[in-house]
């Protein structure tokens, strides 16, 4: 479904060019759910944005559904295959567009027909219902906003969803709802997920395999089962697992 080979991503122009990702390589099979974990600045979100075509400066190879992507632009077919859900639902919805306006515009851009029915269907799919159709973002809670963002991503009927920390801005109980929703949608629509998170337990819950990143490089790729068992081949992975297990009081003399 998605193949990334030797991906290097940078920001800015030559003398002060900053390279955020160094030679990342991984593949996603159709229907798979793959995680990227790492601490802040490890380049995990940058990879997502480069795949989505939001960052122009990259080299290497990005192949979606068998088609190589060019660095500077993406075509209509790409947008119908790949969609993205952003981290902060407070920043990813236009403050002056109602839910209806957001979804209608998206559907129109994607060249869909029967827009009215589709909007209602999308809202039902993400568990909001039609009562939410004419609300503005400020009338929605964080979890509801994220559901709208997911509905927007689903509007194009994509097959690959890029999930950029979709629950890190939400309360834990809302996080559970959104994670369940994402799992259900994946089953129903046969979606492939590429999910970024700093939370190992969220990735372990959602993904089949994951890549651990540190300072722009992929340290190792391992099955989620190994992560649960605390078996990382690399010391950094083990360190990360230990640190996220929570706080341990230090030994006191």
């Amino acid at each position: 479904m998605l193949s990334v080979a030797d991906l290097t991503v940078w920001f800015g122009q030559e003398p002060d060019r900053v390279t955020a990702v160094h030679g990342a390589t991984f593949d996603l099979a159709q229907g798979e759910s793959f995680g990227l974990v790492g601490e802040s600045g490890s380049g995990k979100s940058t990879i997502l944005r480069a795949i989505a075509g939001l960052i122009p400066g990259w080299s290497g190879r990005i192949t979606v559904d068998g088609r190589d992507q060019r660095a500077d632009r993406r075509d209509r077919a790409f947008f119908r295959t790949v969609q993205m859900v952003f981290q902060d639902p407070y920043a990813s919805l236009h403050p002056r567009h109602s839910v209806d306006a957001v979804l209608a515009e998206t559907l129109r851009l994607q060249g869909m027909d029967r827009i009215d029915q589709r909007i209602v269907k999308l809202l039902d799919d993400v568990g909001l219902g039609r009562g939410f159709r004419f609300r503005y973002p400020h009338q929605l809670s964080g979890g509801q906003r994220q559901r709208v963002a997911i509905a927007r991503a689903l509007a194009a009927e994509p097959r690959l969803l890029l999930l950029d920390e979709p629950t890190s801005a939400l309360d834990v109980s809302v996080q559970a709802e959104i994670l369940n929703l994402l799992a259900d949608l994946r089953d129903e629509h046969g979606l492939t997920y590429l999910m970024v998170s700093h939370d190992l337990s969220v990735i372990a819950h959602m993904c089949d395999r994951l890549a651990v990143m540190q300072r722009g490089r992929i340290v190792e790729i391992l099955p989620a089962a190994n992560l649960r068992a605390g078996q990382g081949a690399q010391p950094y992975t083990t360190h990360l697992i230990e640190a996220s297990a929570g706080y341990r009081p230090e030994a006191r003399p």
């Binding site: 559970a176 190992l200 337990s201 697992i241």
Partner: peptide, 11 residues
């Protein structure tokens, strides 16, 4: 409602 590394659940 917290996902846990040591106790995987389906939902």
């Amino acid at each position: 409602s917290l996902p846990r590394l040591d106790a995987p659940v389906a939902r």
